[in-house]
C-alpha cells in the first residue's frame, strides 16, 4: 500500500468544477540509477492512475519515467451527485494503491 495525499473540496455545488490534486509517495525509479554496489536499480514507476467518481471513470493518467518522483497530478472534475471519488494506481512491480474521498454535493 502506497501513501498518498489528496487535496480536494469535500463539499461542492452541483455543476461546480472542482480541482482534485493527488500526490503519491513513490520513487519513480528510472532504471538508470545504480545502488551503492554499482548494480543498476530496475525501473519501477507508477504507470497507471485512474480516478472514478460515482462509479464512472473521470480521469486516467498513463505515466512513464518522465514523471518526477512522488508523482503529483492536479486535474478538474464537474461535481454531479454526492458520492465517493476513488483513486487507484499501479506500479511496474504490480503494487497497487487506492484512496477514497467522499464528496458532498448540494443543489
Amino acid at each position: 500500500m502506497m501513501l498518498s495525499r489528496i487535496q480536494m473540496p469535500l463539499k461542492a455545488r452541483a455543476g461546480e468544477v472542482i480541482e482534485i490534486r493527488i500526490a503519491i509517495q513513490h520513487p519513480m525509479e528510472t532504471g538508470y540509477r545504480q545502488d551503492e554496489m554499482g548494480k543498476s536499480i530496475p525501473a519501477n514507476v507508477v504507470n497507471h492512475l485512474v480516478c472514478n467518481y460515482g462509479g464512472k471513470e473521470i480521469f486516467r493518467a498513463e505515466m512513464g519515467t518522465g514523471i518526477a518522483a512522488n508523482p503529483y497530478l492536479a486535474f478538474f472534475a464537474v461535481a454531479g451527485a454526492s458520492g465517493e471519488v476513488e483513486f487507484s494506481w499501479t506500479d511496474d512491480k504490480g503494487e497497487t494503491g487506492e484512496a477514497r474521498v467522499p464528496l458532498a454535493v448540494t443543489a
Binding site: K56, G66, I67
Partner: peptide, 16 residues
C-alpha cells in the same frame, strides 16, 4: 505521460 479526460472534467487542464 498521457492524460485522458472527458466532458466530466469540466476544465481541460492538468498540472504535474
Amino acid at each position: 505521460a498521457r492524460f485522458f479526460l472527458g466532458p466530466q472534467s469540466g476544465r481541460a487542464e492538468v498540472n504535474t
